[in-house]
Design a protein around this nucleic acid. Structure first.
Lengths: 112, 112
DNA sequence: CATATATATTCCTTGACGGGAATATGTGAT
DNA sequence: ATCACATATTCCCGTCAAGGAATATATATG
């Protein structure tokens, strides 16, 4: 999993843009107007999102319509999935662990 | 959805830490040794992850055992879920959209 | 071609962040 | 109490990214 994907989503304005595009494709100007961000900043943010392959562009006349790229989110989904598997298998032992801090797992080294 | 969660995961070392903790709880020293990062940096990164509520700590003797916090990942999961719903309902219309860029959706304004 | 509109790009400044080094805090052992 | 080990915190510095303002590029329209 690539950290740059998360870095792209880690900027508040960009996360707003993504959640806005979740509804449907939008032009740069519409995004700027809706979110109250100046157009140059929106273009820059969209550039970052595009390099992270989270969005893609299509031209309609002089407008540029940005839309979410499903692949990136599917990748995120499968990455997350690899975590949730472990919750189930460890949910009980985690509870045990939290309530018995004086007895670390056998794999832990002992104090020298 | 909070952007700071993504920002925390957007730093390569921190993402490494999270993926390492996916296997199981670890002490600060073990994380530092495994990833080849100096201990102070690891402590700082763990601080960020903790403030983002991605991890939590427990003490075992003089060691501090960090472990992933399931809630944050479940929240991520449900957030992602709200996207995948839309893929299905729009996967076809998205294909149409991409192949007919000269005909924007009816909600788009016409050029003035 | 001239003009208006939509978007991208550049330059600049400022603030935040990560890494290194040193030090502080806490805890166990003798 | 003293020492050793584990972790956290502080300070400093270099870098990078975000926002503002201005400008460049592209495209439609008359």
């Amino acid at each position: 999993m690539n950290a740059t994907t998360f870095a792209a989503l880690g900027e508040p304005s960009r996360l707003q843009i993504v959640e806005l595009l979740r509804v449907g494709p939008l032009s740069v100007g519409d995004i700027a107007e809706t979110l109250g961000i100046r157009q140059p900043q929106v273009s820059k943010h969209l550039g970052v999102l595009r390099r992270s392959e989270l969005v893609d562009v299509g031209a309609v006349g002089r407008r540029r319509i940005y839309h979410l790229r499903g692949e990136a989110f599917e990748e995120l989904g499968s990455w997350l999935g690899s975590f949730e598997q472990l919750w189930e298998t460890r949910l009980d032992s985690l509870g045990d662990f939290l309530s018995s801090m004086d007895d670390p797992t056998p794999s832990q080294k002992k104090p020298r």
